[in-house]
């Protein structure tokens, strides 16, 4: 059923630390690696060795530059995948019931055998979290690695999404955001976690931790009010222009060049 659950018992989701992410794309590779061989249809690549290669990805890392009115610009690496919204517009538009949000843990999933590939859910998502697979023609999206997190065949430390498990910077965290005492909830509270596009009214579960202010830790250089080095006066150029024979040569050559 494509109606949303009134409430979900858990709100499993990701917390992504924009302060820590180094933009290495390891999460993109791990995500594609796991999800192309597990749950549902593989994630196709089209024209992989041709002029315009493209493929289906459930997670993509953007890079932005922020330019303040004064002070230096900053670069922010920005991973983006499904935010498993509480008020997921992609779910309610689905005409077949293929898209659904689970009542028990809040994960938004696609039942691929019911998907007719109309693409309306991708239109409804403001974040670009859903991509139609170029080969299978069904909608693909982040499953929060639903086939890992409950998988008792995996060692316990591997029971988290592939992107979180692989992140070498520790910029991705997984947990229950409905539980105020969970590690992720405390992280969000401590670091002022934020919603993306709150004006769209989607109430995303995934939270983003803003980059910490850099200006506080790197003070600007002191104002330049004279030489700092006692030797500096002795090291200044002795004369602005050459004199004597060199001066004559310089003038002669300079005049010729003019």
């Amino acid at each position: 059923m494509t109606s949303l659950p009134d409430r979900t018992e858990k709100k499993l989701g990701l917390v992504i630390d924009l302060d820590t992410c180094v933009g290495c794309h390891a999460c993109v590779v791990a995500c594609k690696g796991w999800n192309t061989q597990g749950y549902g249809a593989p994630l196709a690549d089209l024209d992989a060795y041709g002029a315009e290669p493209e493929g289906t990805f459930l997670n993509r890392v953007h890079a932005y530059e922020t330019v303040p009115d004064d002070g230096p610009a900053a670069v922010v690496h920005f991973p983006k995948s499904c935010l498993h919204c509480d008020d997921a517009p992609c779910v309610t538009v689905c005409p077949t019931g293929a898209s659904y949000k689970r009542g028990e843990d809040g994960i938004v999933l696609v039942n691929e055998t019911d998907c007719i590939g109309c693409g309306l859910c991708a239109w409804a998502c403001p974040y670009g979290a859903r991509e139609m697979d170029g080969k299978e023609k069904v909608m693909k999206k982040c499953t929060l690695c639903v086939d890992r997190i409950y998988n008792e065949n995996l060692p316990e430390e591997d029971r988290e999404p592939a992107c979180v498990r692989t992140c070498p910077a520790g910029a991705r965290h997984f947990g229950d955001l409905a539980d105020p005492d969970s590690d992720v909830s405390r992280l969000v509270a401590a670091r002022d976690g934020m919603d993306l596009m709150p004006e769209q009214g989607t109430k995303p579960v995934n939270q983003y931790l803003p980059p910490r202010p850099k200006a506080d830790r790197v003070p600007s250089p002191p104002p330049d009010d004279g030489p700092v080095d006692v030797l500096a006066p002795f090291l200044e150029p002795v004369a602005d222009a050459p004199q004597g024979f060199l001066g004559w040569l310089d003038r002669a050559l300079g005049a010729g060049g003019r």
């Binding site: 993509r60 953007h62 932005y64 330019v67 303040p68 900053a74 596009m197």
Partner: peptide
Amino acid sequence: TATGLGFMGKVRQLEPPH
């Protein structure tokens, strides 16, 4: 608002994901 980075200044795409 899309990136939540407005507090750091004007946001411009530096590099697309692919």
